[in-house]
Deep mutational scan, measured.
Amino acid sequence: NITNLCPFDEVFNATRFASVYAWNRKRISNCVADYSVLYNLAPFFTFKCYGVSPTKLNDLCFTNVYADSFVIRGDEVRQIAPGQTGNIADYNYKLPDDFTGCVIAWNSNKLDSKVSGNYNYLYRLFRKSNLKPFERDISTEIYQAGNKPCNGVAGFNCYFPLRSYSFRPTYGVGHQPYRVVVLSFELLHAPATVCGPKKST
């Protein structure tokens, strides 16, 4: 009989979030998941669920729940959905087409922007091929755009693959930082360890 609440607040209220290319994953298990708490945590810009209804979450049980978190800019949030393409979905964080879970995003301009520009958040701009779903690539190998090998040196047709967002508070919403948490629900042929409040007794 599990009584402890799932530590969603640790994920959502973390002081620092990860850069999207090096997104963070927390496995959540053996706890009571009260998803209604999430609705009250922040004024969400996005709370979209796929393959599951957000209002039914509190009635369900899962084997595992994974919470992935990272920062992107406002106009990239739409890429965090099944079947999307674009720089983020292709080279940084890719959801599977049959994704079961929820994408939660909110504006973090007050936390993640600086007047002089916050350069701490990076994204991958160049990659030889698209990522597979939930693949994480943290390599910093020089990207070869031409025929000549780069031998690890940046220059003509040889690019450092990561680029930094420079978040400034005066930017338009599309270029402001957004914190994203992706909850993916895993149903294996194994005992369910993460249940809503109704199912945990």
Results as ranks from 00 to 15, higher is better:
Thr3Gly: 11
Pro7Asp: 15
Phe8Ile: 08
Asp9Phe: 10
Asn13Ile: 05
Ala18Met: 08
Ala18Phe: 07
Ile28Gln: 04
Ile28Thr: 05
Ser29Asp: 09
Asn30Cys: 08
Cys31Arg: 06
Val32Gly: 07
Ala33Met: 14
Ala33Tyr: 15
Val37Glu: 10
Tyr39Gln: 15
Ala42Val: 13
Phe44Leu: 14
Phe45Asp: 15
Gly51Ser: 09
Pro54Phe: 15
Lys56Tyr: 08
Lys56Leu: 10
Asn58Gly: 12
Asn58Leu: 08
Asp59Asn: 13
Tyr66Asn: 11
Tyr66Ser: 08
Ala67Phe: 08
Asp68His: 05
Ser69Trp: 06
Phe70Pro: 01
Ala81Asn: 05
Ala81Trp: 09
Gln84Arg: 11
Thr85Asn: 12
Gly86Tyr: 02
Asn87Ser: 12
Ile88Met: 04
Asp90Gly: 08
Tyr91Lys: 10
Tyr91Glu: 01
Tyr91Arg: 09
Asn92Asp: 00
Lys94Asp: 01
Lys94Ala: 07
Pro96His: 05
Asp97His: 12
Phe99Trp: 12
Thr100His: 12
Asn107Val: 03
Asn109His: 06
Lys110Gly: 10
Leu111Arg: 12
Asp112Cys: 01
Asp112Lys: 02
Ser113Asn: 02
Lys114Tyr: 09
Gly117Ser: 04
Tyr119Val: 07
Tyr119Asp: 12
Asn120Phe: 11
Tyr121Cys: 05
Leu122Gly: 12
Arg124Gly: 00
Arg124Phe: 00
Leu125Cys: 13
Glu135Val: 06
Asp137Gln: 03
Asp137Ser: 04
Thr140Ser: 12
Thr140Gly: 09
Tyr143Thr: 02
Ala145His: 02
Gly146Asn: 03
Lys148Asp: 12
Asn151Ser: 11
Gly152Thr: 07
Ala154Pro: 13
Gly155Trp: 05
Cys158Gly: 01
Cys158Glu: 00
Pro161Arg: 04
Leu162Phe: 06
Arg163Trp: 15
Thr170Met: 07
Thr170Ala: 09
Tyr171Ser: 01
His175Ala: 02
Pro177Ile: 01
Arg179Glu: 00
Arg179Thr: 00
Val181Tyr: 04
Leu183Gln: 01
Ser184Asn: 13
Leu187Gly: 14
Val194Trp: 10
Val194Glu: 12
Cys195Val: 08
Pro197Arg: 15
Lys198Trp: 12
Thr201Cys: 10
